[in-house]
Structures are given as C-alpha cells and as structure tokens.
C-alpha cells in the first residue's frame, strides 16, 4: 500500500502516533487493544476509522482524547502529550449517545462546557446562538432534550462540542444509533460544518459508505490485536453531493475498504 501514511509527508500534523500499544489488564488476562499503531493526521483532514468491533478504533480515539492511556509508543496532539492537550481543551468529543443532560435545556447543554471553561455570560449567549445556527437548530434552545428527536439530540451534542474553540473534533460513532435517512442528512451536514469551520475531524464508524463519503483519509483497522491494516487517501473532491456515492471512484474506494476489512479478518471468516 504505497499511500500508507507513515511514508508520505504531512504538512502541519495535528496528531502523530508512532508504534502505539495499549494493553488492557482484564480478569481474563491481558488484552492487546492496540498494537503498533502509527498514523499522522494533518490539520484540516477528515479521518474516518473503520473496522469491526474490537478493532481498537474507539480506543484509539479515546487515546487521542486522553481518556485511555497507551502502554507503549508515542502519541502527540498539537505537539503535546494527549493529557496536556486535554487540559488545554484542544478537542471537542462527540459520543455515540448524545448524552445531553435531561435537566438542562438545549441551550443550557451547549453552555455546559462554556460555563466550565469560564466564558462570560454574553459570550455564552453569543456562542450558543452561533453553534445552534451551525447545526441547524435555531429556535430550539429553550427546548428540553426529550422534546427533540434522536437526530436533533445528536446535532445538539455536536453543537456542544463545537461551542468552544477546539480545532479538533473527535466523533465516536455519532450516528450509529440513528436510522439511514437521518444519518444521510447528518452526514451532509457534518461535511458542510467541516467546510465552514475548517476543523480537523476524527470520526469512528461501522459504515463503509459513511466513511468513504465523509473522509479525506480512511483508516481501516482489524481486531485481535487492534491494528491498522490500510490507510486510504481519498481522491474524492472536498465538495461532495450525496449523489457522489453512485460515482465510479466512490465505489472503487468502498471496494478497497471492504477488501481491507476482509483481509484484516484473515481466516476467521
């Protein structure tokens, strides 16, 4: 695979992982969650991590967020250790479930990180208005989470991650629990958001079309031990209408991803 990332130079790297290992000590003995993972993510890239359950894609994202701590290798975020980056609030994290606080309105939920980070009240109001517009939820600030559909809740949780000035957005299967139609719409919106904000995005997914449609770089991973089997730099243009999914290039990339996933499984299938 000549596109393999560790070979090609990346200008302005945001995330650099070299030979990353993570071993979990469990009751059934050690589990190798990540083995020798090397990857560089440049500024403004949209990187998807795809692979079956247990391949370490979420674990890798959590390592970047300093929610897990690697047991070997090196990992830097904005040139710092992940924990330093976390303390500097370098990233916004979107979980699989929206995880909005039921006792806070949508605006209140978006204010949560702003309150913690000590923004002034005026600034909070301003930012809430701005990000609600960004995720197309104007007028819903006063609603409570249970009054919104699942897709809208997830958009609110993205708004919450965008409210402060982190240049890095980490999304862990954000649309995994939503139906296909809602997911298509949200994918389009995420692309628009990415174009407008110029953020670097790390995106974990199960879905091949989602990964190919969104990413500038697709990282294919496989389980036992969790490792990278292929890194695909997408030749698709940044501007992507939904119809692009019927184009020849799209289908070719999807095919390569599928091959990578199959190869990673080896003789287990």
């Amino acid at each position: 695979m000549k596109e393999n990332d560790s070979m090609s130079p990346v200008i302005d790297p945001v995330i650099e992982a070299r030979g990353l290992d993570l071993v979990f000590q469990t009751a059934d003995g050690p589990v190798q969650a990540l083995k020798d993972v090397s990857l560089t993510i440049g500024k403004g890239e949209f990187v998807s991590f795809i692979g079956p359950s247990g391949c370490g894609k979420t674990t890798f994202l959590r390592c970047i967020a300093a929610l897990e701590h690697p047991t070997g290798g090196s990992l830097t975020v904005n040139g710092m250790t992940p924990d330093e980056a976390r303390r500097k609030r370098a990233y916004g994290y979107v979980f699989q479930a929206a995880g909005l606080y039921p006792w806070r309105s949508i605006a209140g939920n978006i204010k949560l990180p702003l309150e913690i980070m000590g923004f002034s009240r005026d600034e909070q109001e301003q930012r809430v208005r701005k990000v609600l517009q960004l995720v197309d939820l104007e007028g819903f600030g006063k609603k409570f989470p249970w009054q919104l559909s699942g897709g809208m809740q997830q958009r609110a949780s993205i708004a919450r991650a965008l409210a402060f000035d982190a240049d890095l957005l980490l999304m862990d299967e954000p649309f995994g629990a939503l139906d296909e139609i809602v997911r298509d719409r949200l994918n389009e919106e995420v692309l628009k958001l990415w174009a407008r904000t110029g953020k670097t995005i790390g995106f974990v997914t199960h879905s091949i079309p989602e990964a190919v449609y969104l990413s500038t770089k697709i990282v294919v991973m496989s389980p036992r031990p969790g490792r990278i089997t292929d890194v695909i730099d997408s030749p698709l243009p940044r501007e992507r209408p939904l119809e692009i999914r019927d184009s020849r290039e799209f289908i070719e990339i999807a095919h390569r991803v599928r091959e990578g996933l199959r190869a990673g499984h080896g003789d287990e299938i």
């Binding site: 967020a65 300093a66 929610l67 976390r86 609030r89 990233y91 994290y93 979980f95 990180p113 913690i116």
Partner: peptide, 8 residues
C-alpha cells in the same frame, strides 16, 4: 468522560 474532556 464528557466532564473529563472539558477538563472540569
């Protein structure tokens, strides 16, 4: 975890 990502 969310609170941790905000460094609360």
């Amino acid at each position: 975890d969310l609170m941790r990502t905000y460094n609360a």
